[in-house]
Amino acid sequence: MKEFKYYSPKSLNEIFKIFEAEKGETCLIAGGTDVMLEINSKKVNPDVVINLKSIDEINYIKEDNEFIRIGAGTTFTKLSSDAVILNSARALAQACSKVGSTQIRNLGTIGGNIVTGSACGDSVSALVALDAILVIQSPKGKREITLTDFYSPGQKSVCDGCYHNTPGIGKDEVLVEVYFKKAEKNEFSAFRKLGKRKALAKSILTVGMSIEFDDDKKVKNARISLGAVGKHPYRVTSAENIIDGKKLSDETIEDCLNEISNIVIANIGSRASCPFKKESVKGVAREVFASIIEQSSL
């Protein structure tokens, strides 16, 4: 491991001061479950490492009238067992409960999952389906960006200091919060991951879904996300459109699954994994639909 200077600030303000004072390559560490491996293997060679674990102001799960707000430093363990998340963002709780292993979930944070920008970030896939918004802070103040925009290719990479070149986060910025709308009365979400084993599994693909029904049990608002079938998790709006305004009959679901499969082909058609993923995604998404239908009929 390369030699570096270490800081463990207690507040965001302190971090910004360190940003200002240190000119070398800076790396933020929270759970460390990804970044430690990168530093160890010398893929990342920071001059300065800043610990985020001691910053209490980014470790929370809050709800207000409209939104659920999650501090970027919140661990997967907390998210997967938190009553608020379980009740009104089940997809996220399910996704977080499937990350790595118990030990990894105890360390790893949702903020880390977002900024490492991994294609298969499980929680990210769920957050995309929940239409999450990120709050990014710098000495200049706060700004907000949707998760989808955060990963969109149009974003200029302004980060040459942080370790993954995630588009959308600046050198003097810190991701502090992710928030999303609370589920409506008839809104349900679910998530399913396909991995190579039942734990400690990197995702082969993930499907996140959030569906709101009207009083006639017709789909009022649908959001479906896919993970590990492209550079970052993304929404599949053309598939959402198929079910929009309709009851979730077997035929409608089948049409939607076929469209999801087509989107997978469009995105990763040239890859060796495509023949498998374009088929299995249907099975996985069908189970997610089943989970949502089950929740809605309770």
């Binding site: 759970g31 460390g32 430690m36 490492v49 363990t77 990894i104 105890n106 360390l107």
Partner: peptide
């Protein structure tokens, strides 16, 4: 670590301060 099982290979030593 603080009542939770963690893999000590992915924790930086100074992170366990306090």
């Amino acid at each position: 670590l603080n009542n939770e099982a963690v893999t000590s290979c992915t924790v930086l030593a100074p992170q366990v301060d306090n």
